[in-house]
Simulated assay, not measured.
Amino acid sequence: MRYLLLPLLLLSHLALAEPAELDWLELMPEADRQALEAMPEISHDGAEQDGAFYTPGGLRQQDQSLPPVMYSAKTVATLDGKPVRLGGYPVPLESDAEGRSTLFFLVPYPGACIHVPPPPPNQLVLVRYPRGIELADIYAPLWVSGTLRVEPVSNELADAAYALDAGSVRLVEEADL
């Protein structure tokens, strides 16, 4: 009996463990990563200095003079259907009756909705979280865990190359760092 208990405990621990952490650059194909690393320094000045929350065009790329990698929607097919944990910053889209965000973009850096240029579509993830989370501060980083999908998403604010059906969303805590 004792020999049966140990495997069951181990399996229950693994079932509760969070999925493997995914780095934002892993969402880009290798050619895009190399192009991004080779890209010259660009200005990130934007509407933030004016106190604006969303720039005209939102997270859509407006500057047509940037290298093609800044418009890339190329994805990594092997990530489709994978359970992942991704850290990032929310750009709220929809809320429930209690004001909890149930649909938002997750972006790799804070204030992506007001910085210029915004991230390319393969660096934007639409998060669906029916349980919702209260987002008091869009500059507070989140951990989002769930199933990642290669799924082109387009709305008035942005184009994204991925969507994530979240099982859990939580604020990053001091102990995580």
Rank of each mutant, 00 (worst) to 15 (best):
L142T: 03
P119H: 06
A163P: 06
A163Y: 12
G57V: 09
P68I: 05
P108C: 11
P40D: 09
A77N: 10
G99F: 03
V125C: 05
L164N: 10
E174W: 05
A52E: 13
N122D: 05
Q61K: 13
Q62N: 10
A97C: 04
L171N: 14
A175M: 12
A77F: 00
H115S: 09
Q62P: 00
A52T: 00
P108G: 12
A163E: 13
R170D: 01
L103A: 04
A47M: 11
A158S: 07
Q49H: 13
Y109K: 09
R60M: 14
D80L: 01
P120R: 12
I114W: 13
D165G: 05
Q62S: 10
R149T: 07
L148S: 06
P68Y: 06
E41P: 10
A136E: 15
Y129G: 05
L124P: 00
T102F: 07
P130N: 11
E151M: 11
L171S: 14
D176N: 12
F105I: 02
S145W: 02
V84T: 01
A136N: 13
A112C: 08
T55Q: 14
G87W: 06
P117W: 09
G51D: 05
E151L: 07
Q49M: 09
A97L: 11
L86Y: 00
P68C: 05
I42P: 01
F105N: 04
D165N: 07
V169G: 01
L124V: 08
Q62I: 00
P121R: 07
Y129L: 07
Q61C: 06
D159M: 04
P110L: 04
Q64C: 01
E174K: 10
R128M: 02
P117A: 06
L59C: 01
D63E: 08
D63A: 08
S101C: 09
R60H: 15
L79T: 04
S154K: 12
V76K: 13
Y139S: 02
T55D: 10
L106R: 12
M70E: 06
L142C: 04
E151R: 14
K74H: 14
Q123L: 12
P141M: 00
D96K: 07
P118Y: 03
G146V: 00
E156T: 03
Q123P: 03
A112N: 11
P83A: 12
Y162W: 07
G167F: 03
A136T: 14
V127S: 09
Y109A: 10
I133K: 12
G46E: 07
D137C: 03
P83M: 04
N155A: 08
G81A: 15
C113Y: 11
A97Q: 12
V153M: 02
A175Y: 11
L126F: 01
A163R: 13
A52Y: 13
Q49F: 08
P92G: 08
I114D: 03
